[in-house]
Design a binder for these strands. Structure first.
Length: 518
RNA sequence: GGCGCUAUCGUCUAGGGGUUAGGACGGAAGAUUCUCAAUCUUCAAACACGGGUUCGAUUCCCGUUAGCGCUACCA
């Protein structure tokens, strides 16, 4: 082959969402795989808005897509809008018509959904439409009669349309089984198939990496490319992302967990989210799982993509499915905080456990300064006043205790507030102890902590010595103090915590605890 | 209905004519520890079913079943 002597060209790939809904996780994964392929091969990443369906496009969808992509923070090299390229699409369609490979169909468009489900057998073309003579076709068109332009699929004989998919291998389908699909609608607007192929050819797309739901459409696309005189690009179809019940992801059925911004708002790190999505339908084949974007880029290849659908294992919120009337659309700006109101479970148990684990891993891998900087705005947004410096000292204490960035709010709350929220005084009572012991421990603690230096080692020594003096175990000494200063039993290590809290706050909270059990 | 695609632990996956079918998440148990978390150790858990081919199939072929996709003048 001649091509084999030519230097291999840098690939050009595209992500082509249609703005008819928010950016969902499946689309995000398609974007990521395209991006990874482009970067791995030093190619070009193109973003193209496939907005030819004017009736269903919304600005809100466009915004949602950009919002989601912006969070992913991967970027792209070129950007196009299909709606600005309609002349090209029409030109392509009429060129195909001129070659005799398309014809005008004056049959009125199917109106209802009636035909869809009841369709028995295969519909290939509208009766009579193919046979209209060129002269009559021209005459009726000139008379202003509306028509759709259809591709004249060669149904006679047993010729097959073929292509090789990088993931699914050799594909062939009898042309006789392919219907005469539309190129131009009766309003003159291009259909998805035509616009997509015309643009792919014009933008010199070398690899089309997209969802498997397009696998059977690809036969039509090959027909269009060939009719337009272009060589079809390399195709690579991705297995679909499905819900735990096996059905495709849908916001109405599955709630906000399918929207990219939900992950962002819940406190996912975009790099963890990307990592998670990459592991769905692709494998580096060396048992690596926790990977940075850099590592993913290096490891990515089309060969690692597998063929069966992958389940995003979030918790099915059946309550919501039943409680939410099916005809009530959930607004796209639904936030994690509204989950409960809508009947969805709390975020920590709705997300795929693996996504949560990866996020925790990525959080721990972040340098303290960076994690702290990411946490700060969340804390501020929640209405707490914390200095950058204090946050920097809190961060190491919670970074192994949070799975989502937002967990900072529950893991470190006692550092932020002046007055601890009310807690059960019974919590102050240590293991195998009683209220009297709790009181003795707190009184001793108050005495010791009034003088000791508020640094880890001196605190450690002083409190342990105090425990010995009182004849209680170290744990019995620490627990009442921990609850007194944190308001709960489960908290970061005591000495580090006291160090950050400082003497004044510590003593004040011990005093309050003492009053609680008085 | 037609056409296409898919089938390994609960989930994501590795593997491949002969393996104790590997890893990870999640689960269970234990160790460690001032609680929680993290960490470490251990355990349970899978080749959808039926036919071939073969000395031998989870792996190759066919069928069945199931799931998914397409079957629009949606994308």
């Amino acid at each position: 082959m001649l091509e084999s002597f030519a230097p291999t060209m840098a690939p050009r790939v595209r992500f082509a969402p249609s703005p008819t809904g928010f950016l969902h996780v499946g689309s995000a994964r398609t974007f990521i795989f395209n991006w990874l392929y482009a970067r791995h091969n030093k190619g070009t990443m193109i973003l193209r808005l496939d907005d030819t369906d004017v009736g269903r496009n919304t600005q809100a969808s466009v915004d949602s897509i950009f919002e989601g992509l912006k969070w992913l923070n991967l970027g792209w090299d070129e950007e196009y809008k299909q709606s600005e390229r309609i002349d090209l699409h029409r030109k392509t369609a009429w060129a195909i018509f001129e070659k005799g490979l398309a014809y005008r169909d004056f049959t009125p468009a199917h109106t209802g959904e009636a035909e869809k489900s009841g369709a028995q057998g295969t519909w290939l073309f509208n009766p009579g439409a193919r046979e209209i003579s060129p002269a009559e076709s021209d005459r009726r068109a000139a008379a202003g009669e509306p028509f759709a332009l259809r591709f004249r699929v060669p149904h006679e004989g047993d010729q097959a349309v073929r292509f090789t998919d990088a993931v699914y291998g050799e594909q062939a389908k009898l042309a006789a089984d392919i219907e005469d699909f539309a190129l131009l609608r009766s309003d003159g607007m291009p259909t998805y198939h035509l616009a997509s192929c015309a643009d792919d050819a014009d933008l010199r797309i070398s690899h089309i990496i997209r969802g498997q739901d397009h696998l059977s459409n690809t036969f039509k696309h090959v027909l269009i490319f060939e009719a337009a005189g272009s060589r079809p690009p390399q195709f690579a179809h991705l297995p679909l992302l499905v819900a735990p019940d096996g059905t495709k992801l849908s916001k109405r059925r599955h709630g906000p967990v399918v929207s990219v911004t939900t992950y962002r708002d819940a406190g996912f790190l975009s790099e963890a989210f990307i990592n998670f999505l990459c592991l769905l339908g692709w494998s580096p084949k060396n048992d690596r799982e926790n990977m940075s974007v850099q590592e993913l880029t290096e490891a990515f290849s089309l060969e690692g993509i597998n063929r069966s659908n992958a389940v995003v294992n979030f918790k099915e919120s059946t309550v919501a499915a039943e409680a939410t009337p099916p005809n009530v659309a959930i607004p796209s700006e639904v936030r994690e905080s509204d989950f409960a109101a809508l009947g969805f479970a709390a975020p920590e148990d709705t997300f795929d456990p693996k996504a949560l684990w990866l996020n925790a891993e990525h959080i721990r891998a972040l340098p303290v300064e960076e994690l702290s900087a990411r946490l700060l705005p969340i804390v501020h947004a929640a209405g707490f006043q914390v200095t950058e410096d204090k946050m920097l000292r809190i961060t190491p204490l919670i970074r192994e205790r949070i799975k989502l960035l937002r967990d900072v709010l529950t893991a470190a709350d006692f550092f932020f507030v002046d007055q601890l929220p009310p807690y059960d005084p019974a919590e102050l009572i240590p293991q195998k102890g009683d209220a009297a012991m709790a009181r003795r421990v707190l009184e001793k603690g108050r005495e010791v902590l009034a003088n000791v230096e508020f640094k880890h080692d001196p605190l450690d020594q002083a409190l342990r010595a105090a425990a010995q003096e009182l004849g209680v175990k170290a744990g019995q000494m620490f627990q009442p103090i921990r609850v007194a200063v944190c308001g709960r039993k489960n908290a970061p290590p005591l000495f580090e915590t006291l160090e950050v809290l400082g003497r004044e706050t510590t003593l004040k909270r011990i005093e309050q605890a003492l009053q609680k059990i008085a």
